[in-house]
Design a protein around this nucleic acid. Sequence first.
RNA 1: GAAACGGUAGCUCAAUUGGAUAGAGCAUCGGUCUUCUAAACCGAGGGUUGAGGGUUCGAUUCCCUCUCGUUUCACCA
Length: 566
Amino acid sequence: MDEKLQVANAISVALPDLKIEEIQDKIERPKDSKNGDYAFPTFFLAKELHKAPQLIASELVEKINDDGFEKVVTAGPYINFFLDKAQVGASILKDILEDPEHYGESDLGHQSNVTIDYSSPNIAKPMGVGHLRSTMIGEAVARILEKVNYNLVRIDYLGDWGTQFGKMMAAYKMWGDSDEVQQGLKDDPINTLLQLYVRINQEADEHPEYTEAGRDWFAKLEHGDEEAWELWRWFREISLERFQRVYDMLDVKFDSFNGEAFSAQKMEEPIQLLRDKGLLKKSRGAEIVDLEKYNLPPLLIIKSNGTTTYITRDLATALFRKRMYGHAKSLYVVGAEQEVYFKQLRMALKELGFNWWDQIEHISFGLMNLNGQKMSTRKGNVVSLENVLHDSIDLARKQIAEKNPDLKNPDEVAKQVGVGAVIFHDLKNYRRNSVDFNLDEVVKFEGETGPYVQYARARAESILRKGGIRDFSDVDLTQVGDEAWELLSFLSQYSEAIKRAANNYDPSVIAKYALELAKKFNQYYAHTRILDDDPQQPARLALTQAVSNVLKSALDLLDIKAPDEM
RNA sequence: GAAACGGUAGCUCAAUUGGAUAGAGCAUCGGUCUUCUAAACCGAGGGUUGAGGGUUCGAUUCCCUCUCGUUUCACCA
């Protein structure tokens, strides 16, 4: 960033009529390093000066003082600036090595509170690979926002309320007494309940009374029926226990597990507010908020049988969160299929007169399909997330046995690599793309994968162990050599990458950065022997340490572990 | 039918938000382990960026038209 200002100042001498800020806006980073480190295109001056851009560039470059730069040259209509590699490189290294933990941080958030709602599985159903998206995008976005100085509140808004539980209760009451089901409940309670749920949904087409029974059971729950509540508590308890196993594997921790049931107790307020403002209208036996003026479908607040919907609870949740956390942003990491719904929610809050309606942001992501089909718990075609993680870990263990049989802690590393591969695969692409689940792709360890990044860092650590130096404060960092410049220049862009990731709520920016850095390091050490015993060795080791630090930091933003050996 | 999102190499995806010769990884073919871990590195082939128009010095990017795909369009969440 300082370098960009330095470039702008140099240009400013030749173009005194332009403000520094205007110049900075025009400065670019060339894609190709042979075009220098910063470039200033002159097209926009052509009209005003009635001259060809090439001519403008060559005239300007005459007036620019190249002190402090390696060189300043024109390339057609561009003026290209080459930084003093030794000086700038040394200062980049110094920045990283002095405080590796905080390198790349910035202050976009000013400590303000952000609630982030993610993962949010439904109880009494197993977590499928589909839940990976919300869980990991949410966790990574949270970590990225923390890095730019927001204060995060992580919320797992459990789906623990709604007619679906009525259905499940109805199914359990009808078929749950059989020995087969009882045995299943002992061995694998969630899956057994799921099977009941799938069954009642399948048979409901022929037996409309099943759907009716489900609605009735949910109505019982809403009216505080003791038997219904007992079942509900039991469903919730066994579910949370099971979810926790997955969260432990993924290393995600929530600040709150308040789900829909929690919000269900707070529904009077939004309903009353809607009534007071005259926003609630009768329609087809139900009560709705009309959003036609926003070109949106109506919001169904109270169903014709008198029960509420998730919308009512979401309104209550929004009010509660604003009051409780005083958030500057309230984020919801939910699939793109609910885009319209979040627009409705925002507009409903706007209609209610809350000026913070636009703090609610939907971080949407593309669906995960299975063989081109949408995964659906109701249809029963889900792939267990836990199984996928275990498959990946097993594969990593095999690779370790083959490639590094002497590793001291193979089980721990297998877990870090296996889980890391799955997480990275989920985060590396732009979140709105839909992904087709393919186990072979997910557990790939070569090419653009999590293990590729982990491996590059493990190699760096291995070299550092052999190099013996860990304190670089007395090392002359200007001695790294010009061949390190690509790497150094890229290291200095870490902070920009984090800001871009934060502004777009897009972890893939970090994943791509980590891949690129790993690649540049792999290329570097394939061509330059770091441990060569010459006067530049300590500086090369310092570079290796800096790369290792930044790779670890980037992986950490993605919630991926960085083993020292693998 | 309407709206949102998307269409880039055989496949999966990039392209720093309008810039320099559209780049990676898989897959295919070839090269590199007595020298810091070959989960790596080096090279080759592979493109009318869905189609057509427009704005601009300059378009994968912005604006229209068409087309294909996905999703959504009140009693699931």
